[in-house]
Write a protein that binds this DNA or RNA. Sequence first.
DNA 1: CGAGGTGTTGAGATTTGTCAACCTACGTGG
DNA 2: CCACGTAGGTTGACAAATCTCAACACCTCG
Lengths: 244, 244
Amino acid sequence: MSELNRSSPSDLKVACSGCNLRELCLPFALSEADVERLDNIVSLRKNVARGQALFRHDAPFLGLYAVRTGFFKTSVPTGDGRDQVTGFQMAGEVLGLDGLGQERHACDAIALEDSQVCVIPYERMEDLSREFAGLQKQFLKIMSREIVRENSVMLLLGSMKADERVAAFLLNLTKRLQARGFSSSSVLLRMKREEIGSYLGLKLETISRAFSKLQEDGLIVVDQREIEIRDTAGLQRLVNSANC
Amino acid sequence: MSELNRSSPSDLKVACSGCNLRELCLPFALSEADVERLDNIVSLRKNVARGQALFRHDAPFLGLYAVRTGFFKTSVPTGDGRDQVTGFQMAGEVLGLDGLGQERHACDAIALEDSQVCVIPYERMEDLSREFAGLQKQFLKIMSREIVRENSVMLLLGSMKADERVAAFLLNLTKRLQARGFSSSSVLLRMKREEIGSYLGLKLETISRAFSKLQEDGLIVVDQREIEIRDTAGLQRLVNSANC
DNA sequence: CGAGGTGTTGAGATTTGTCAACCTACGTGG
DNA sequence: CCACGTAGGTTGACAAATCTCAACACCTCG
């Protein structure tokens, strides 16, 4: 009945050991042997259509998910029915870490395009320690990185101006896309202005104006959701100059 | 030579099993047997004087710390030498989770009063999986909770007005103090207005004005760093009404 | 008693939000 | 294939919130 059920849980056999995201995803820096152990834990894939939820807040925690293809946003409810976007996730990134603590999800995860995730079922995570110490530590590392990421978002939200936030947002996106082999000078945004605004703590009109401003200054070229980066160093200077 | 060295690493023998913070700290919800295993991992205490750093960003990650007595702040550098405060930690709370991922700390941890922490040395964490599956999962849970906490700070920074942020801050503090057996109607702030402002993404003058405003409205009474909560429900309404 | 750190308050500047109009792209149905 | 409706995006004018700068008050500590 839930939106979750409407997605198709295709029971494809997964193999981290043969995945082209190895270097970016769960297996990063793991030994060959450890990756094979991981294969036993990550056992199936799941498709999520654009607009659908992978999970919703308050839903029981069933496991972690690694994005295989596609693009997600996570958001927390504001109490009055609206949401604040807390992150955007692309291939190789992990969703659901918020749910481990209370065995219940703290945010919604919505696909911004047709996507596919690899599933790490909660009950299999019990096997982690039995499987190998290296694997268990891997999860601690992944969570630690998420904490560091959130620290940097707090920095952004707490101390940057609108233009600086947008510049930092674009640089972060292109850096992650570049690590995945995409162009670092051109981004196709998968989210709307309103979602960027929610993530950056700004209104959609302010995002729009910031894009226009950065374009006027020759740092980027905006064509709808297609952003061309003209001056990466200039954007970086803008971010660095924050709070001076 | 570092400030770290100037703190006195008193080699007291620690026993989680006999600690009065059991229910709030690392051992929460662990079995008697697991807590005894934890005793083998948490092996010493360390004093940190007011104003000193427990660790600094970029320093090698040596282990996790559980606050035993005292009060800390964590902050990340903004790039221009200044810092943004990312959290305040009191007895039973864990410091250093940010360092696991890169084996290097991402933030500074500074004592706001003379404090004592229990040390979980990094090399001992290797023993976690050998010791017991329950223990390893405990750390994942603690990290997950930190992620959820940071989510809620992002929500605060991204979508609340000054008064609402301050109200949320006070409610959060009193809730945590109450869980530790302190009065929920009176708080002695351990940090200055500037640090609250940094944490909440506001300037110190705005914090001062927000306190005055909440006092005018009869919700609190302010006397320097001593805050008396007069109307918890009123503060809660203010927080809930955010974004309406 | 004086100095320095911290906190409060006011006035004006700056930034962002709000509201409204308009534009563009896209999908649907005639 | 075109007309139309709708969602998303841009821009302007004004309002509201916060920041900035400055003056001053208070407290602590030597």
